[in-house]
C-alpha cells in the first residue's frame, strides 16, 4: 500500500476505528458480563455451620419473612409461606414467591448453602440474580450463623402447593442479568449508621439494618430504586398506594424510647391509634421477640437522628 493511493488512505483509518470498536466492544461486553455475574457467599463463611431452629424462629420474626411471603388473603396463616402478595414499584409489579417447604413450588429441595446464598447474596440455586425487592440488601449484613438457624427453622414450616407468580416488569428490568449491574452499584454490607454505638444500640442496628429491614419502606429511593442513605428513615412515598410511609427519624419524629418499644410490642401509637397497613404484619412479627430486643431497636431508631 502506498501513500499515493487515495483510496487506501481513506479506507485505512476506517478499518482501524472499526477494529478498535470491535475489540473495545468485546472487552466492554466481557467486562459487563463479568461485573454482572452472580456472586454467591464465599464457601469459607459457610463451612461447618449447623442450624439451631429455636434461634432460627427468633430470626424469622425479626427478619419479617412472613410479612411478605404469607398469602395475601385476609386471615392467612403467617407460618404458611405460600407467597402471592404483590409489591408495586416504579419498575413493575413484584410477586412474593412461595418459600414454603413444598418441593415443587416452594424451597423444599434447597440445601443450606442454597438458602444462605439466596438470602444473603440474592443468588438463586441455579445461579440467577434475585431482584432487590427481596431485601438481601439488608440480609447481606447478617451473621451467616443466624441465616443458617433461620434455614433450620423454616424447614419445620408447612408445605403449600401454590405456584409462584412471575413478576410483571418493564424492559430492561425484566432481564435478570441487569440486576448484576445494580448490585455492583448499590449492594454492600456496610452499616449505614456508624460511630460509637452502645452495645444495645449496636444490637438494635443489627436487628433493624440486617434483619427487620426497616429502611426498605421508611427510606426514600433514588431513580434506580436504591435506598437514599442520606435520608435514612426520614419517610418515603408509599409505593403500594395512597399516603406516605412515616418518618421514624429526623425533626418530625418525636417518639420516646418507651413509645417505640411499646408500639412494636402492642401496635399502639403514643396517641393510641392502632397500627394498620403493611406495618401491622411487621408488628405481628416483632412483638414475638423478647422485650430487650424491642428496646434495642428503639435505642437504634433514636440513634439514627444525627
Amino acid at each position: 500500500m502506498t501513500v499515493s493511493d487515495p483510496a487506501s488512505r481513506k479506507k485505512k483509518p476506517v478499518l482501524t476505528v472499526l477494529a478498535v470498536v470491535a475489540l473495545g466492544g468485546a472487552a466492554g461486553a466481557a467486562a459487563l458480563w463479568w461485573i454482572t455475574a452472580p456472586t454467591p457467599v464465599s464457601a469459607a463463611r459457610l463451612a461447618g455451620l449447623t442450624g439451631d431452629a429455636e434461634n432460627g424462629e427468633a430470626v424469622f420474626h425479626a427478619a419479617g419473612c412472613a410479612s411478605c411471603h404469607m398469602a395475601p388473603d385476609p386471615g392467612a396463616d403467617p407460618m404458611v409461606l405460600a407467597g402471592g402478595r404483590e409489591f408495586l414499584s416504579d419498575f413493575g409489579t413484584f410477586y412474593a414467591p412461595n418459600i414454603s417447604t413444598d418441593p415443587t413450588h416452594g424451597i423444599g429441595t434447597w440445601s443450606q448453602d442454597d438458602f444462605v446464598n439466596a438470602v444473603m447474596a440474592g443468588v438463586s440455586p441455579d445461579g440467577q440474580h434475585y431482584y432487590p425487592a427481596f431485601p438481601y440488601t439488608a440480609y447481606i449484613k447478617a451473621d451467616p450463623q443466624d441465616i443458617v438457624d433461620l434455614y433450620a427453622f423454616m424447614t419445620t414450616l408447612p408445605a403449600d402447593a401454590t405456584p409462584s407468580r412471575a413478576h410483571d416488569l418493564a424492559f430492561p428490568f425484566n432481564i435478570r442479568r441487569s440486576v448484576g449491574l445494580w448490585k455492583a452499584l448499590y449492594l454492600d454490607d456496610d452499616w449505614t449508621i456508624t460511630g460509637d454505638l452502645t452495645q444495645t444500640e449496636a444490637r438494635g442496628r443489627y436487628l433493624s439494618e440486617a434483619l427487620a429491614h426497616c429502611a426498605e419502606c421508611h427510606t426514600p429511593r433514588n431513580a434506580l430504586g436504591a435506598l437514599d442513605t442520606s435520608q435514612w428513615m426520614l419517610g418515603a412515598p408509599n409505593p403500594s398506594g395512597q399516603g406516605r410511609i412515616p418518618a421514624i427519624a429526623g425533626p418530625d419524629f418525636d417518639w420516646t424510647h418507651f413509645d417505640i418499644s411499646a408500639y412494636l410490642e402492642t401496635g399502639f401509637t403514643p396517641d393510641f391509634d392502632v397500627v394498620g397497613g403493611s406495618m401491622a404484619a411487621v408488628v405481628n412479627s416483632l412483638q414475638q421477640l423478647e422485650k430487650a430486643e424491642l428496646d434495642a431497636i428503639a435505642a437504634y431508631i433514636l440513634r439514627t437522628t444525627p
Binding site: 385476609p74 395512597q242 399516603g243 406516605r244 410511609i245 401496635g267 394498620g276 397497613g277
Partner: peptide
C-alpha cells in the same frame, strides 16, 4: 380487633 381492620381497610396517612 382494631388492627385487623386497619390492616386491610385503612390507607396510610398522607
Amino acid at each position: 380487633a382494631c388492627q385487623a381492620c386497619h390492616q386491610s381497610y385503612r390507607a396510610e396517612a398522607s
